[in-house]
Simulated assay, not measured.
Amino acid sequence: MPERFLGIDTSNYRTSAAVYDASSGAWRNEGGLLSVPEGAIGLRQSDALFQHTVRLHEKIGSLPSGEVRAIGVSTRPRAVEGSYMPCFLAGESVARSAAHLLSVPLFAVSHQQGHIAAAALSAGRLDLLDGSLLAWHLSGGTSELLLVRQGEDGLPGCTCVGGTTDLAAGQFIDRTGALLGLPFPSGAALDKLALQARPEKGFAPKVADSRFSLSGMQNQVENRQKAAEPAQLARFALETVANAVVKASDQAVRRYGGPILCAGGVMASEVIRARMREAFGDAVYFAEPALSGDNAVGAAVLASRLYERMKT
């Protein structure tokens, strides 16, 4: 008998709805990037909210119909006080209405918690959520290394123990992409371009207590732009991020132990993944590219876990 759960996530750049079957582990995700004007490197929240409102019903309508046990929805970026973005209101409004009409439980989660759950599912290691682990959340707006332990509420409790002190990795990548005339968000295109380049060491940012700065790296990229081929510049940027991520991870593992779970759109980069595999081998886990970026699968997975917890 299927145990289906609906997940909804309306983040800053992607509208996403998903169905997850806890009995089989199968999932179906319907998502799409929001439209960003050519040459722009972001959206106003009002524009993102409008696009989510227009598109969310299409994503839900593309999912297979059938009974669901509960609904999970991302209502804020992170599970910390003051974390808020208007774009999440689009998903929360629809989720609350659907839960009321279907008479099923509604579980509110954070976008970050959904990322972690989706990565664990994709890696075939949902059991990681029952213990202690390190997790990277590298995306357009967030670059945090998290110590994750299950909280009293049954959700992943995330404590930031490292990451950037200024510019997020995704912002650095998108700004590099803009210099090269790549579409926004630039992660996938920049990674594809970088894989065409010769091996490149990149710059080694200073890392202390698993924390590092990327703001100065933008100047490094700009200074190299005229002399370097586009592919080589793309490789330089991604290897620079990889240098910082690997060193920060190593420092955290020495302090807290592993394993390491990698989530967020930036972690879809083959350049960064290769460096992490080289450094940590079987102790590092990744989400498949379809579940690396913003998605609702994680929200549905967490809804299934909270539903089972509620029944006991």
Rank of each mutant, 00 (worst) to 15 (best):
L179N: 01
D250N: 13
A178E: 14
K192T: 00
L195G: 08
A208H: 13
K226M: 11
R273Q: 07
G187M: 05
A252V: 06
E229D: 01
P199S: 05
V245M: 03
Q220A: 15
L182S: 08
E270S: 14
G257A: 04
D209V: 05
G265Y: 08
Y256V: 10
F236T: 05
G257P: 08
S215L: 13
L190D: 00
A248I: 00
V266W: 07
A248Q: 01
D191Q: 06
A268E: 08
V241W: 03
R175C: 13
R275D: 04
Q218K: 15
D282S: 08
A178Y: 14
K206W: 12
G257Y: 10
R277E: 11
R275L: 03
Y285N: 09
A228Q: 04
Y256H: 14
G258S: 09
K247G: 09
D174V: 05
E278F: 05
A194D: 03
N223Y: 12
Q225H: 14
A237H: 06
P183G: 04
L261Y: 13
A231M: 00
R224M: 05
A234N: 07
A274C: 07
D209Y: 07
A228H: 08
I260R: 02
K192A: 00
Y285G: 11
Q218R: 15
P259K: 12
L190R: 02
Q251S: 07
F286N: 10
L193E: 10
T176R: 13
L291I: 04
L233H: 11
F212C: 04
V266D: 04
E239P: 07
V241H: 07
P259L: 14
V266C: 08
L182A: 09
G181W: 13
S292N: 15
V241A: 11
S249H: 07
A287P: 10
A188E: 13
S210K: 14
L214W: 14
F203R: 04
N223D: 10
C262H: 06
A227T: 11
G202F: 03
V246P: 10
R235T: 00
R254S: 11
E288M: 06
P185M: 13
P230G: 01
P185V: 08
D294W: 11
L180M: 00
P205R: 10
D250G: 13
F280T: 07
A237S: 01
S186L: 09
A178D: 13
L195T: 06
A242V: 03
L182Y: 06
A263L: 12
D174K: 01
Q232L: 00
A252P: 09
A197S: 08
T176V: 15
A287W: 09
V271E: 12
M276T: 07
V245K: 06
S186K: 05
R255M: 05
S269N: 04
L195Q: 14
L190Y: 00
